[in-house]
Amino acid sequence: MKSSVFFLSYSICLWLMLLIGAPALLTVVNADELGETPNIRENKLSASEQKIFTLLKTEFPGELLRDEFKTLRKLSEHKRYLNYLSETYAAEKPFKKFEQFPKNVLPPKERYLKYFQEHFNVKNVDEITEREHAIFHQLSEQLWKIDVQQLHGKEMTPDAMMPFLMKGIMNKDVQEWMVQRKIVTQENAGPQIGQFLLSLMVFNLDIVIKDIEGTKTLLETHGQNDGLIRLAIQKPLLFARILSSFNDTDVFLTWTKRRRVQ
């Protein structure tokens, strides 16, 4: 499927569908305004996790958010931390820098299983190929970043969203996958792609909220500094997502208080 065949038609249809659907899907408010407090759960460290936690806590004893993520980025490049990740994810592609980690390591397929079950009649993760796992993750990550852009003072209107979304779906591998999964047909590409992205936005908002809740739970349970170190150790992909999306402490802390409006 050639990009030029579909670009104009689904750009127009996508814009119209986002105009209708996006505002409601991306509306979130401060959790305190809803009177919601997530359940605080025990999150015990394994022996290897405790070892690297103690080391990082010793190496970075001050306030980790005191300098707008500079200290956290130094932590992410600490040699012992990178060694820990390399050992923990030994089966994945090797990496030398932390910024390479999320490019070489994908989250479990279970993260996206519900969508595949509801839209592609998939029963278990074994039916999700490695290729489409990577493709779906790529699209999900782009939507995750779109949500964060709102907190940085960028109004995510349909026009503003378009470059982010088009960057993903104009990829040749993505287009071939959409045909294979019968998301689109050449005769009716525009509305079908618009509908697909809307369904993906709804699904992905739940992922964003789960990531927020997981982060907030660690910070509230263990305190800001210990919670952030635990996040780096126990949820390194989420840690990487946060480092690539935030450089302002206040914006990040505002993000941890967001909840979906039901």
Score class of each variant (00 low, 15 high):
residue 3 S to V: 10
residue 4 S to Y: 11
residue 6 F to S: 14
residue 6 F to N: 10
residue 8 L to H: 05
residue 8 L to E: 14
residue 10 Y to H: 08
residue 15 W to V: 00
residue 16 L to V: 01
residue 19 L to K: 06
residue 20 I to C: 03
residue 21 G to C: 12
residue 21 G to E: 07
residue 22 A to N: 09
residue 23 P to T: 04
residue 23 P to Y: 03
residue 24 A to D: 12
residue 32 D to Y: 09
residue 33 E to L: 15
residue 33 E to N: 15
residue 35 G to H: 02
residue 39 N to F: 12
residue 45 L to E: 06
residue 46 S to D: 10
residue 46 S to H: 09
residue 47 A to Q: 13
residue 48 S to I: 01
residue 48 S to Q: 09
residue 54 T to I: 03
residue 55 L to V: 10
residue 56 L to S: 07
residue 64 L to Y: 00
residue 69 F to R: 05
residue 69 F to H: 03
residue 69 F to D: 05
residue 70 K to T: 14
residue 74 K to C: 15
residue 75 L to G: 10
residue 78 H to A: 15
residue 80 R to G: 15
residue 81 Y to A: 08
residue 81 Y to F: 15
residue 85 L to S: 12
residue 85 L to E: 05
residue 92 E to R: 09
residue 93 K to T: 12
residue 93 K to M: 13
residue 96 K to I: 03
residue 97 K to E: 02
residue 99 E to M: 08
residue 99 E to N: 11
residue 100 Q to N: 07
residue 104 N to Q: 13
residue 109 K to V: 01
residue 111 R to V: 13
residue 111 R to W: 02
residue 112 Y to H: 13
residue 118 E to V: 04
residue 118 E to K: 13
residue 120 F to Y: 13
residue 124 N to E: 08
residue 124 N to D: 15
residue 125 V to I: 13
residue 125 V to W: 02
residue 127 E to F: 02
residue 128 I to C: 06
residue 128 I to G: 02
residue 131 R to Y: 14
residue 135 I to W: 00
residue 136 F to W: 11
residue 137 H to M: 10
residue 137 H to S: 15
residue 140 S to G: 14
residue 143 L to M: 14
residue 144 W to S: 10
residue 146 I to R: 02
residue 146 I to L: 10
residue 150 Q to V: 10
residue 150 Q to M: 11
residue 152 H to R: 06
residue 158 P to A: 04
residue 160 A to W: 00
residue 160 A to L: 02
residue 161 M to P: 02
residue 161 M to S: 09
residue 162 M to I: 01
residue 162 M to P: 08
residue 167 K to Q: 14
residue 168 G to N: 01
residue 169 I to T: 11
residue 170 M to A: 13
residue 171 N to D: 14
residue 175 Q to A: 11
residue 176 E to R: 12
residue 177 W to K: 08
residue 178 M to D: 06
residue 183 I to E: 00
residue 189 A to E: 07
residue 189 A to D: 05
residue 190 G to I: 01
residue 190 G to E: 01
residue 197 L to Q: 13
residue 202 V to G: 05
residue 203 F to C: 06
residue 204 N to L: 06
residue 214 G to H: 04
residue 214 G to M: 10
residue 214 G to E: 12
residue 216 K to Q: 15
residue 216 K to V: 06
residue 216 K to E: 11
residue 217 T to A: 15
residue 220 E to N: 12
residue 221 T to C: 13
residue 228 L to V: 03
residue 229 I to S: 12
residue 230 R to G: 11
residue 235 K to F: 03
residue 236 P to R: 01
residue 237 L to A: 06
residue 237 L to P: 05
residue 239 F to C: 12
residue 242 I to L: 04
residue 244 S to N: 08
residue 244 S to A: 12
residue 246 F to E: 02
residue 248 D to K: 03
residue 248 D to T: 01
residue 250 D to G: 00
residue 256 T to S: 05
residue 257 K to F: 00
residue 257 K to R: 09
residue 259 R to C: 02
residue 260 R to W: 00
residue 261 V to F: 03
residue 262 Q to G: 11
residue 262 Q to E: 11
